[in-house]
Design a protein around this nucleic acid. Structure first.
Lengths: 202, 202, 202, 202
DNA sequence: GATGAATGAGGATTCATTCAT
DNA sequence: TATGAATGAATCCTCATTCAT
């Protein structure tokens, strides 16, 4: 009968709120998402949301951290610590990672940024610094290492790490917009990897 | 006495308003676009906007639908009528076309569809049918013809015309979001074309 | 029976709203005044208030204009255009003006600025520039003119036009706070004028 | 292990909180002062503040009442016990006292009373009785004594002790609002004293 | 047809106050 | 006592939409 009005759960709150925020952002978009609803879904008062996240932008950054950064960082760590050959890594963990993006929460964040990012340059910058730039640097480093190891040739492709991920981006967008229209995004990405490897392998 | 700018025919009004609306949507996104500003740019009162478009949403639909992608049709025609070799066409008109996309109205439409698409599946369908599917079909056809002509080999790449345009999509997104962060999108697309050609040339 | 929902009275609205704003500010103080209530008292929607006054601060500036500046400017004009001798002017129009301040709407504005001004430096600056600085300059000019005309001596008092108005300020505050406790503010100001004249008359 | 700052006696708590509250009220004004900040400055939790002061309003009253104007009492005592001549006293201790007011806690109290006084008439009364009336009486007494001693003449000025302090009030206000705009408040008050003495000296 | 003054339903954010710990 | 997490009402401001003129 009790249902105490208060529930002190400092530890879990931020995560729960960010979780709820992701859902609302995903459904409504950033602008249209109401903090009210975020709070409600998190089973929390509006005020508490502001206790943990000073602004709506901060809340979105938390979502980026929780959804994207963790995932990307795991891949980037793997690049550095792997004992696989470059080709094996590309065909294995890297491709696995890329296949997981379309349809994932990551692609939701990407959509939000694409759709409304230009109204919120801070968010874009945060995402660029913590995800894009880092990712690009890591791929560059990976390719260079391959060259140093004698696994890869030096080609123009090496200058454009974006080519590795372009099909992933297209796949993510495709799946979001045209879900029903068939495209085997996994094989799309595999094919690009095949082509790249055929091109740059020593 | 005449201010010719204000002597436009009534018949032009809807088009002018839609035109202005496109600009504002492009700059601000759907949510952030204010009808006030649309009216102002169209040189028209707010009330009149509502005379032609019952709601903001209707205006949005009209606008998006009205941005006719003649560009794609022109490319399609060029594919059929060209006298260039497949490689020449790819490196010439096709690449030219792709370079023109980032920063164009097309990428604006992509952004708007991503932001608001899920609320307007009919718009998404319209664009899929008239732009995406058509484009994909055209590239497929172009590659097949190359094979028939003995210019191209049959490879897995042929099954994924999306690989031709993936870097273009990435470039469009990059330019929208990260304008200032340097990426030579033209060379990115050239490099992909180089790689594809190296891969599929007979 | 009709009571039209709309009443187009563009001409009068700003004044009416500023009028209502003065009342609410006077009763509640600046911070505590709610725009909602201002609108309600003006018989107008909240939105309309914002149509005429972009922010609460703008609204307050309008109040300052309507209440203080007009009144002060009239005195300043009189200083320039009067044909009275300096002493006559001081004992006549100037004293009249000063006597009118305590208990007037002007003193309400002064109270508001004193009470909450430091949270709103823009308002203070606006008031300083348009009222205080102007008033001080005018009194200085008035005294100098008296000296030039041979009516006044040169004394230290001439350097502090603030001495002319200090009793007025005290009177205004006294009346606001201690209304009931007797102080003949009129005679207080007269006495200061007497003393000043006795001091600086040639 | 000890952090002496946090070992303060319980008995000091209310005073410490009130002290901190005074500072915050002084800086922010009543409305804008946040209990959060009061608690923080007192090195105490928000909850504890509410243990000692039921509401913000109660805290305000306690604070205002607690700022005892020993200062005024000290001046009053000095008037009675001084061995200086009236002119010497006026130019010495009295002027010194007045110069100390602008920028002091007293002027803060004046501001707070002006802002919130009408909602707390008991505070106003308290201050009138214990500060204003006492001060005025003391000056009156001082002037009368001067007359009795043959140092001062009987003039209208003698009936308005407020004239002694009017420039002090103006200075206090000026400093609060226009800090940066130059006015030599010390010399302003000196000049008034000069003028008064020139006027009433026997 | 046109205008733009007027409306009013939100939406982000703040902060006094409460209460489980 | 003491804490500070949690609440929710309040408040400024925006903007799609309406409608008298």
């Amino acid at each position: 009968m009790a249902e105490p009005r208060y529930q002190r759960r400092k530890e879990d709150r931020p995560r729960e709120i960010a979780e709820a925020a992701f859902e609302v952002f995903a459904e409504k978009g950033y602008q249209a998402a109401r903090i009210d609803e975020v709070a409600q879904r998190a089973g929390v008062s509006k005020g508490l949301t502001y206790l943990y996240f000073k602004t709506k932008e901060e809340l979105f950054k938390a979502v980026i951290r929780g959804v994207v950064i963790r995932r990307v960082d795991r891949l980037l760590d793997a690049v550095e610590s792997t004992e696989l050959s470059s080709e094996e890594f590309l065909r294995g963990p890297m491709l696995e990672f890329m296949k997981g993006i379309p349809g994932s929460r990551v692609s939701v964040v990407i959509r939000l940024l694409m759709a409304e990012g230009h109204r919120h340059p801070d968010l874009v910058e945060y995402y660029y610094d913590n995800v894009v730039a880092k990712g690009i640097r890591t791929i560059s480093h990976f390719v260079e290492r391959g060259v140093e190891r004698g696994e890869f040739r030096k080609t123009a492709v090496n200058d454009f790490p974006q080519l590795f991920i372009a099909p992933m981006m297209l796949s993510a967008i495709w799946k979001m917009l045209f879900e029903t229209r068939s495209l085997d995004t996994d094989r799309l990405m595999e094919t690009q990897v095949d082509m790249i490897l055929a091109h740059i392998k020593a």
